[in-house]
């Protein structure tokens, strides 16, 4: 058979779908035990808040869990990417193919998002159950999207510099704690000492949590426009950083 002289122009959507399908959809179907792993930490904190406060802090728990699930989903992308790069050498195959780095990154990120879909659906259902309007829920979805882009970029960036998969796992776990447990994610920023507030306010997770808290009727501890601006800037800056500084072809 003569060689078919077809230069395969990558259909980005098809590439994205293929990566998402084979690295996300199939693993979720074949091993649904992955899903509780994403649930565990955010829902444990939500449960503790619920029990400890007799249910009164449930909205804070929902806002915190939404932030934490999204943050972990983004950062887990870094762990996955490190594994595909260092252990499986799959990234070598991808680099030497027509697939672009951003298609690959978002393909893996979307595949990870499939694992997070069930907990996110539960949390949005809880939000709706507390009277949030459709517009509010759509706005919250937008916040989830921005935070996801931000944390995915962080995960991707660190995975590129991780010497081992274990290292990536540890670093991303540490960053997840730094971003979604310590800052005012499960509690109001007003509870922080005044000196810490300016630092907390510029964190994308604090911004997202503040917006979720507002959507859940808790009021906005930070002006919502400021929080949106923080999220937008963080997403844009980190995406740009990943685009320009990531090690797709090794130097």
């Amino acid at each position: 058979m003569a060689l078919q002289k077809v230069r395969l122009m990558p259909n980005r959507i098809r590439s994205l779908w293929a990566i998402m399908y084979y690295l996300g959809f199939i693993p979720v179907l074949r091993n649904p035990l992955f899903i509780p792993f994403v649930f565990s930490s955010p829902f444990t904190l939500l449960f503790i808040l619920f029990v400890a406060t007799g249910g009164t802090a449930l909205p804070f728990g929902i806002a915190g869990a939404l932030t934490m699930v999204t943050t972990e989903l983004g950062l887990f992308v870094g762990t996955d990417l490190a594994s595909y790069k260092i252990q499986n050498k799959f990234q070598d195959i991808v680099v030497a193919s027509p697939v672009s780095p951003l298609t690959y990154m978002f393909g893996v990120a979307l595949s990870e998002l499939l694992f997070g879909a069930p907990p996110l659906i539960v949390l949005f259902a809880l939000m709706a159950g507390r009277g949030a309007s459709v517009v509010t829920i759509l706005a919250a979805l937008g916040v989830v999207g921005l935070l996801w882009v931000t944390t995915t970029s962080i995960g991707f960036f660190f995975s590129a510099y991780s010497p081992s998969t274990q290292n990536a796992f540890i670093i991303n776990g540490f960053i997840a704690t730094l971003l979604s447990v310590l800052p005012p994610v499960y509690y109001s920023v007003s509870l922080l000492p005044a000196v810490a507030v300016p630092f907390a306010e510029v964190l994308p997770t604090t911004a997202a949590a503040s917006l979720f808290q507002g959507a859940l009727g808790l009021g906005y501890s930070i002006p919502p426009l400021f929080s949106f601006a923080v999220l937008l800037m963080a997403a844009a800056l980190l995406l740009a950083l990943v685009s320009f500084r990531m090690k797709w072809r090794e130097p």
């Binding site: 395969l8 122009m9 098809r14 590439s15 779908w17 293929a18 084979y22 690295l23 991808v94 193919s97």
Partner: peptide, 10 residues
Amino acid sequence: IMLSLRMRGM
């Protein structure tokens, strides 16, 4: 194999 081919746009 399918992943390798489909991600290349086949």
